[in-house]
Nucleic acid binder design. Structure first.
Lengths: 183, 183
DNA sequence: CCCGTGAGTGACTGTATAGTCACTCACATG
DNA sequence: CATGTGAGTGACTATACAGTCACTCACGGG
């Protein structure tokens, strides 16, 4: 199948498939065959492009954070209110838009759940480090404000994974109030 | 093995084993055999006590939230500062102590990652509902304060799962600052 | 036109695992 | 002592999955 291409061109395509598939099934719930099917290549060829399932997941996670950092950065560029809080707010808005298809969000949640695998924990820390450093340096906000920025981001993850935004009860609206999350 | 007992007595014991094992391996990464070994019974008998792996996980998660609610409630009872913020703070302290062995924390994180399995998502929402309702009713704090309470709880989960509290860099201390988490 | 290189795969292996079922055996009761 | 009930298990099935390997085949350079 597939019109002869170079391996180097295939790698980002397979990585993108891995992001989607791992996001939907998690690390253990996703098979190499799933990723291969999405990328329209054979499972065997996935192993020619990546040495193991673990490394494929790491590549997907790294790409996820690459996209996040890029998006946050653009959000900061386009902030109308250029105070620290205004910039953090613009970044939050850009992030909310980015994760509207939920893949990048779910991948992070799944990664947290297998962060005890050393290479995955490492990749997760690298990603969070780049996010925190970007938020701090671009906004110039206080440490507390950056911490709050991340905390509410995590709350947003909880709301989306559990589908709290579709629950009409009082407790659910307490958690969701004012949080920008994908509809 | 094991000194003849009633099934009803076994259930909570197996549930406790399930909490530990699922917390350490996640839903897909933990086998019925793992839980059985921990509970010192045969895998086959686990299926006599619980109809499926899914239901066993749900039982473990429910027990996890039962413990959390109990602990938060006791924390609120023992608060020295009885203002809303003081009570929320006492609850946070009680929670930090409860999750010092990380099992109850990790189980929640793993549950989030398989919340797309209907019964598990349901159990997670039930648990969060009881936590939010308890925090609100016991502290009488504003909706915002309760939301913040949960958001920083989620940040605490991130810090623990990724081992950020062992990273000496600046970005890591921004995230960990002032957060009570298990050492 | 031939041949080397690299893209891509089919078919396989070994292992793991959810769930089932027929069975054993301890004990309480009459 | 006989028997029924419920605790508990060994052995099995069916399936799935990570990773391997020998292979085919398209293409570009000489």
């Amino acid at each position: 199948m597939s019109s002869l291409s170079t391996a180097e061109e295939r790698v980002p395509v397979v990585t993108a498939s891995a992001v989607r598939e791992f996001a939907s099934g998690g690390y253990r719930g996703t098979t190499i065959a799933d990723v291969a099917r999405d990328a329209r290549i054979s499972p065997a060829y996935v192993f020619k492009l990546f040495p193991s399932k673990e490394r494929l997941f790491v590549a997907a996670l790294a790409d996820c954070f690459r996209q996040i950092v890029e998006t946050l950065s653009m959000g900061a560029d386009e902030a109308e209110d250029t105070s620290s809080d205004g910039i953090l707010d613009a970044m939050g808005g850009a992030y909310a838009e980015l994760i509207s298809d939920r893949s990048l969000l779910m991948l992070q949640v799944h990664a947290q759940s297998v962060a005890n695998i050393p290479e995955i924990g490492q990749a997760l820390r690298l990603g969070m480090a780049s996010v925190v450093r970007l938020a701090k340096s671009r906004s110039g906000a206080s440490d507390d404000a950056v911490q709050r920025f991340v905390a509410y981001g995590q709350l947003c993850h909880l709301i989306v994974t559990t589908g709290i935004d579709d629950v009409p009860d009082e407790w659910a609206s307490i958690l969701s109030a004012g949080i920008r999350h994908p509809r």
